[in-house]
Structure formats: C-alpha cells, structure tokens
C-alpha cells in the first residue's frame, strides 16, 4: 500500500547508517532500500504471512508479530529510528504503539492518511465517507480502523510528551509544508521523546 511516492520522502528522513525498526514493514521494500541506499541496518515487524515471506525473500530481517500485543521484545533506545509508515491507522492500540515507538527508538517517524485532506472534507460535507486513491476502501470494509488528521496527531504527540522535529504533508510524492492539514493526503511526523 505504501508506494514510492511515500517511500522517497520518508527515506530522506532516515540518517545514513541508522539502525532502523520498521513497524508494519509490509513487503520489506522500504527497509531493503534503506539498507542498500543509505547503509542502514535493522528489522521489520509484520503480521501478515505473505509479507513475512516477501521480506525473507528480499533478505530483510523480519519478526512476525502482532503490534497490538506490544513491543516488549525490543529494549529501550535500541534503534536510531523507528518507522510506522501506514501502520498507525491499523492499530487498536495506536496511542500505546506511539509511546512504544518513542521508547524503542531515539527518533520516530510516522506517516498515515490525513483524513482532513480537502477531498475527504468535501465528501463528508456531501454526507458520505470518502473513497479516494489514498483511502480506497468503503467505510464498511476498511482496514483503517483509526482515522485521524494532521492536526489530531499534533495533539496526540503533545499529550504523549513527544517533541516534533519535523512535520509535513505528502501529496503525489511532494512535500506539502503550507496548510498540510487541508492540502495533503498523507501526514508525516518526525519526533523524539521530550523528556
């Protein structure tokens, strides 16, 4: 689900040579790319059998686990960067996992669909849940059980004592820094623990 238009700008946020944990790593494409192009190392965490297989096929280290059961297997500060790319919206324990992300990694990077993107607002204004390229599911069969906005995440981050290091929107692979809450279908946050 995470295409190159999201991966490119995310990869740029990850420092060269970083130890990376990718939560909900999918088929491992992003991790493979970080390892090849930026000299990173690390692991993916994934629940789906087919994705685990693809990771192993790519030679990306992957741990099969359900993120809703927590990250107890990882120690505090054991990674330079923890990624949650298009993962948060699938989690029942989204807030717990955000805290866990900040516990396990020195830097967290989260990307998720921004529900306040203007076409979504328009759809809601017409009385219907949006079905878009970014949110292609009908309301009754969507795997996205958490719908939030760029601004919502700022509030959640503050509530969990996270310091936002960078935040922008993504639209068609381009960074959106002016009015991202309305103008971008994807929200991206880079943060660290404030304490």
């Amino acid at each position: 689900m995470t295409g190159a238009d999201v991966q490119d700008p995310i990869a740029r946020l990850v420092p060269e040579g970083a130890r990376v944990l990718d939560l909900g790593c999918g088929d491992g494409a992003l991790l493979e790319r970080l390892q090849r192009q930026r000299g990173c190392s690390g692991y993916g965490v994934e629940i789906a059998d087919a994705n685990v297989l693809q990771c192993v096929q790519r030679g990306v280290d992957v741990i099969q686990a359900n993120l809703d059961e927590g990250l107890a297997i990882f120690e505090d500060d054991s990674f330079d960067v923890v990624l949650q790319i298009d993962t948060l919206q699938h989690l029942r324990n989204a807030e717990v996992m955000l805290r866990e992300t900040a516990r396990v990694g020195r830097i967290g990077i989260v990307a998720f669909p921004n529900f306040a993107h203007w076409p979504n607002r328009l759809s809601i204004a017409r009385g219907r849940m949006p079905v878009t390229r970014r949110l292609p599911y009908q309301w009754y069969d969507t795997p996205n059980i958490r719908v939030g906005t760029f601004k919502d995440f700022e509030v959640l981050a503050q509530r969990n004592r996270l310091r936002i290091l960078d935040a922008f929107g993504l639209e068609d692979g381009r960074e959106v820094r002016w009015l991202p809450n309305a103008r971008a279908s994807t929200a991206v946050f880079k943060f660290e623990r404030a304490d």
Binding site: R19, S41, Y43, D49, D61, V62, I63, Q64, A65, I73
Partner: peptide, 21 residues
C-alpha cells in the same frame, strides 16, 4: 522461540522469525 529472538535482537544479530498459525 520469542525468548531466543529477543536474545538475538538484544545482541543485534541478524534474525528473522516466522510464527506460523
């Protein structure tokens, strides 16, 4: 098995883990 995985992760060793249902 997860205990072993954790010991390997803690030592930063290369490990993949599949939990087959």
């Amino acid at each position: 098995s997860r205990e072993i995985v954790k010991a390997l992760l803690d030592n930063r060793r290369s490990v993949s883990y599949a939990e087959i249902d």
